[in-house]
Write a protein that binds this DNA or RNA. Structure first.
Lengths: 119, 119
DNA sequence: TCCATATTTCTAGTATATTCGAAATATATA
DNA sequence: TATATATTTCGAATATACTAGAAATATGGA
């Protein structure tokens, strides 16, 4: 991932309304949600929602497919994975370190403390 | 993590210069870098760098400790871990899904394709 | 074709972020 | 105290983003 792609993804998520939209789509998974569904859940005016969806699409975080009159929006998980990888790239100079590098496992932590905070 | 904390972390990273600063600190790990080190590496004027560091600190992504005249800046890995968890929370409604949920392992992928892109 | 539903584009008023030189502050050492 | 180094704060010019009503576009069905 290049810097400007990462910046545009981060900027797209750096807004309360868009973050809420994105998180709804993450939970919805591959089935997605229509624009109307999202508007209902978030009580957001159509024009505002459309503007924010276009920002998320432009950043590659959301994709849409048509289903009749409706447009079904889905989160693009590849992009968020790439973003997280970019943010944590070569963490601590490449040494084995705390779970920022390996978020899913409890292996290879440096210290057996309750809260993980070092890198 | 609450929405406004996540938004402030994302907004802090959503700038080319600040993202570059943050990524330098991720690589530097717990040893950190001084403000001067960062300015030299990124060729950024002191006032501009100070402004951006304050944004990153305000968002909880960077911390500083004093070492004589110098201030050593470090990335706060707990915050980025929390942010990633917030972004991917309850992904796909909680079902086992692609590696956005479990980025460190190759287990529990839905399909054995080369590129992971579904959630 | 005509109408209803779903969504986007237009528009303009309002608010917030970025930049960096100059001056101020903090610390160390003689 | 005087001086040098390290970093932050001030200030003002400049640029960009947000909001949402109204109008326009796209699709499906009678």
């Amino acid at each position: 991932m290049e810097s400007n792609l990462a910046v545009s993804a981060l900027a797209a998520l750096a807004h309360e309304g868009r973050l809420a939209i994105y998180r709804l789509l993450v939970v919805a998974g591959p089935d997605g949600l229509t624009v109307g569904d999202i508007g209902d859940k978030l009580k957001m005016p159509g024009a505002t929602l459309s503007f924010h969806l276009s920002q998320l699409k432009h950043a590659g975080l959301v994709a849409a497919r048509r289903d009749g009159r409706r447009l079904i929006q889905t989160a693009d998980f590849a992009r968020i994975n790439g973003l997280v990888a970019y943010l944590t790239e070569n963490c601590c100079g490449g040494q084995a370190c705390a779970p920022v590098c390996k978020p899913a496992t409890n292996k290879n932590r440096r210290a057996p403390k309750a809260k993980a905070s070092n890198g």
